[in-house]
Design a protein around this nucleic acid. Structure first.
Length: 274
DNA sequence: ACATTGACCTGGGAGC
DNA sequence: TGCTCCCAGGTCAATG
């Protein structure tokens, strides 16, 4: 599930329950995620106070007394806030309990996610230090993107999904932003004009902001186990809409694979110019 | 340095 | 009902 809006929604959802709490107990039921959870993580975490929770790209960062707990949700990960540590279900790989009685439970069927404890300077952590700017920050600008794009020959969809260019633009929102900017996903990045990239920067910010706002509408239900993220309800223009009518011109949406990811576009609204 | 592909996993749905 | 095949919101590592 998680693209950036869901990770941000998760951060906002867990923060009031977990921030400024102290970890009292840690239960790992499956250490085998994308990278193995370190075997002594219980010892490392118990007693740690959560000073602050932040997000960098799709990584959740729980800043603790003596280090940082990095959590990534991968393709299928979920974090829930529970009143009880009972009712353990399949794929509930980890529980973190706090002094206020809350349990933070990590569930991840595909196990592409990660739970990592680090005492390094988090800015220079191997997974974070080479990441591009946050999409919703001023540093992600048309000028920035244009300069980067000049040096690259990949198609624009692959380009904006590259975390070294900009973080947090996953497959759904890459498709949606390109539709709104009227850019064909196959367009070579270096061939786009400053004007077009300005439009694309705008639509990336717009689509992510809208999705975060939609995710926020489900926050009141965050503690329910079945609390579905709200952004699914959002109107998608192209993603998953193969052969359906374009909302703008009524032509049929088409699909193909780009870098092994499903790509959707409207051939009329997003003409290929090069 | 950049571009491309494979790899990691489980579950759900389509088609037979 | 059950089997096989394909697909899925991510991203690092290995290979040219």
């Amino acid at each position: 599930m998680p693209e950036l809006p869901e990770v941000e929604t998760t951060r906002l959802g867990i923060t009031p329950h977990v921030e400024s709490q102290t970890i009292t107990k840690v239960t790992i039921r499956n250490y085998s995620l994308r990278w193995p959870i370190q075997s002594d993580i219980e010892d490392c975490l118990v007693g740690q106070h959560i000073n602050h929770i932040s997000r960098r790209a799709k990584y959740l960062l729980l800043h603790c007394t003596d280090g940082t707990l990095i959590i990534h949700l991968g393709m299928s990960g979920k974090l829930r806030v529970l009143d009880s540590a009972d009712n353990v279900a399949k794929h509930d790989h980890a529980d973190i309990q706090f002094g206020n009685g809350i349990t933070l439970r990590y569930n991840d069927p595909r196990r592409f996610g990660a739970i990592l404890w680090t005492q390094d300077d988090i800015q220079h952590h191997k997974l974070l230090e080479h990441l591009g700017p946050e999409p919703l920050c001023a540093a992600f600008s048309a000028d920035y993107l244009y300069k980067k794009a000049q040096k690259r020959k990949v198609c624009i969809k692959t380009f904006i999904m590259d975390g070294k260019v900009v973080v947090g633009v996953g497959n759904i929102y890459a498709n949606e932003a390109l539709f709104l900017a009227k850019i064909h996903p196959k367009t070579t990045s270096s061939q786009l004009s400053n004007r077009q990239l300005e439009q694309l920067v705008t639509t990336i910010k717009q689509v992510l902001e809208k999705a975060i706002a939609a995710g926020g509408t489900t926050l009141k239900d965050f503690r329910k186990s079945d609390g579905q993220p709200g952004y699914f309800a959002q109107q998608l223009n192209v993603y998953g809409r193969d052969k359906q009518a374009c909302h703008h011109c009524d032509n049929k949406i088409q699909t193909y694979k780009e870098a092994q990811r499903a790509t959707y576009f409207c051939p009329l609204c997003q003409p290929l110019l090069n």
